[in-house]
Design a protein around this nucleic acid. Structure first.
Length: 470
RNA sequence: GGCGACGUGGCCAAGUGGUAAGGCAGGGGUCUGCAAAACCCUCAUCGCCGGUUCGAAUCCGGCCGUCGCCUCCA
């Protein structure tokens, strides 16, 4: 069985074979940092984090780069509005975004290139394009000559004629062709700028990713990812620039995630219908966001509603239910064999699902089957190494999706610091004595009060267990 | 107008030819002092119409609807 990945370039699933055996170079387009990131950005980060984690699980050595666009029209506008320095503003939001990624349990990238650090490479690449006839200068601006690129449009499957009927083409008579796009923009008052052979200015949007990929990852990378709203024009133009410059394929696999939907339409900064990552994390866990996203397929839209989120939180609780400790003492027998087989099947089903273009929905189904098997086994009195193995497998496979299941019950109170455990244990013990004495009212009072404080008590045949709830 | 995706139970969502995974919610039950959790049972013929086929949610055509992109966007 081999990993299959849906390639936007060919519009079909293809067997994954990296340029260099055993190694994967991937690049994911990051945000333009001029405002707080929202859960749509989080989705892209989480989707490609999952891809990366799975590739690692499958034994690949993955080098992962994701960029920050820190030089851009909107950053400049926002900076001017607030009287801040554009680069400083971008640094502020970049830093904040990095913290969000950590909160969301996204593995740190191997490189976080920024436009402002890449200017010499960018200038060099624009010059290269000029030498090969793919770029031309007009009054200090440099444009990419789209008509010189014979396979322009291959990613988005657009014909050049179609673009002419578009609705938002820049009216600029100086361009040779309306579809040509800026590689270098001459400086205007109040803008940051760098010296170049064409005078002071700054890079266009698309060239940065070309230069970063080229200089951080090489001429042909294995996976290039981003939101599907970037297919055109951003990724189309990246391909045009890169392949015109190097005469080599730019990326072997183009992967695009679907859009987060809020109230029936795409969540986006320009539409203003968004939930920031800050806002989200105030009331929900990063794990729940992963559950929500992975319940569906990464290429499809995700419905972000209080109802779907609530369902995700409940699903998470169900996954965790399997991690409660064994209560019996049977380490051999038929029930143990059944659990052992279920553990094995779950792993196989998980890998099979993930190999099929990261079918996380089916992969999660495999985990839920394992949850049921573990809970059934516990009810049947199973304990010992095979019970532990089932739990370890669940934790491990959830971890491949970046989902962290609970630490042991009572290990640490979230946000409460230290040493709460002995006191709760004491209360639970006292309550147990009250139950023995059939003092139901007092026993229930303790249970209800602890529940209010976020401690759930569950009475079983061998006494009461308790745990912190989210 | 052009390009693309999608339409599966109350909700979310897998499933590209052989009679519908999983999660949430709901109903019934086991367990329990009660409760919670867990476990068991239960709950759909796949937008509409037509076609291909022994057989279609899955292939083809038409229609209706939703969403994305068309040079700002994860």
């Amino acid at each position: 069985m081999a990993l299959q990945i849906y390639n936007t370039l060919t519009r079909q699933k293809e067997e994954f074979t990296p340029v260099e055996p055993g190694k994967v170079r991937m690049y994911v387009c990051g945000p333009t940092v001029y405002a707080d990131a929202h859960v749509g950005h989080a989705m892209a980060a989480i989707v490609f984090d999952m891809v990366r984690r799975y590739l690692i699980y499958r034994g690949y050595d993955v080098y992962y780069a994701t960029n920050f666009t820190d030089v851009d029209d909107k950053i400049i506008r926002r900076a001017n509005e607030t009287g801040r320095d554009p680069i400083e503003l971008a640094n502020y939001f970049s830093q904040k975004y990095l913290e969000h990624l950590a909160d969301l349990n996204v593995l740190p990238a191997d490189a976080y290139p920024k436009v402002s650090d890449e200017i010499p490479h960018i200038i060099q690449d624009i010059q290269g394009l000029g030498e090969k006839g793919y770029a031309y200068e007009v009054d200090g601006d440099v444009y990419f000559r789209v008509l010189a690129d014979d396979d322009y449009g291959k990613l988005s499957r657009r014909k050049l004629d179609d673009a002419q009927t578009g609705t938002r083409i820049e009216e600029d008579a100086r361009k040779e062709y309306s579809g040509d796009f800026a590689l270098w923009k001459s400086v205007k008052p109040g803008e940051p700028s760098w010296d170049s052979p064409w005078g002071p200015g700054r890079p266009g949007w698309h060239i940065e990713c070309t230069s970063m990929c080229l200089h951080h990852l090489g001429e042909t990378i294995d996976i290039h990812g981003g939101g599907n709203d970037l297919i055109f024009p951003h990724h189309e133009n990246e391909i045009a620039q890169s392949e015109s410059l190097t005469d080599r394929p730019f990326a072997r696999y183009w992967m695009h995630n679907g859009m987060m939907q809020l109230a029936g339409e795409k969540m986006s900064k320009s539409l203003g219908n968004l939930v920031t990552i800050d806002e989200f994390l105030e009331t929900h866990s990063a794990n729940a966001l992963r559950l929500l996203i992975f319940t569906g397929h990464y290429r499809k839209p995700v419905m972000f509603t209080s109802e779907t989120l609530d369902g995700a939180e409940r699903s998470l609780a169900r996954l965790r239910s399997a991690l409660r400790p064994a209560t019996g003492s049977a380490s051999t027998g038929e029930a143990v064999d059944v659990l052992r087989e279920a553990t094995e099947s779950a792993r196989i089903a998980f890998v099979t699902a993930m190999d099929d273009d990261f079918n996380t929905s089916s992969a999660l189904a495999a985990l839920f089957e394992l949850v049921r098997a573990a809970n059934t086994a516990r009810d049947a009195g199973v304990s010992g190494p095979f019970f532990a193995a089932a739990q370890d497998t669940l934790r491990e496979l959830a971890g491949v999706l970046g989902i962290t299941l609970a630490a042991d019950a009572g290990a640490a109170a979230p946000g409460q610091g230290v040493a709460v455990k002995p006191f709760v244990d004491l209360l639970v013990t006292v309550r147990g004595d009250l139950r023995t004495a059939k003092q139901w009212a007092l026993a229930d009072q303790i249970r209800d009060a602890l529940q209010e404080l976020g401690v759930a008590i569950e009475d079983g045949p061998d006494g009461s267990a308790w745990r912190f709830e989210d």
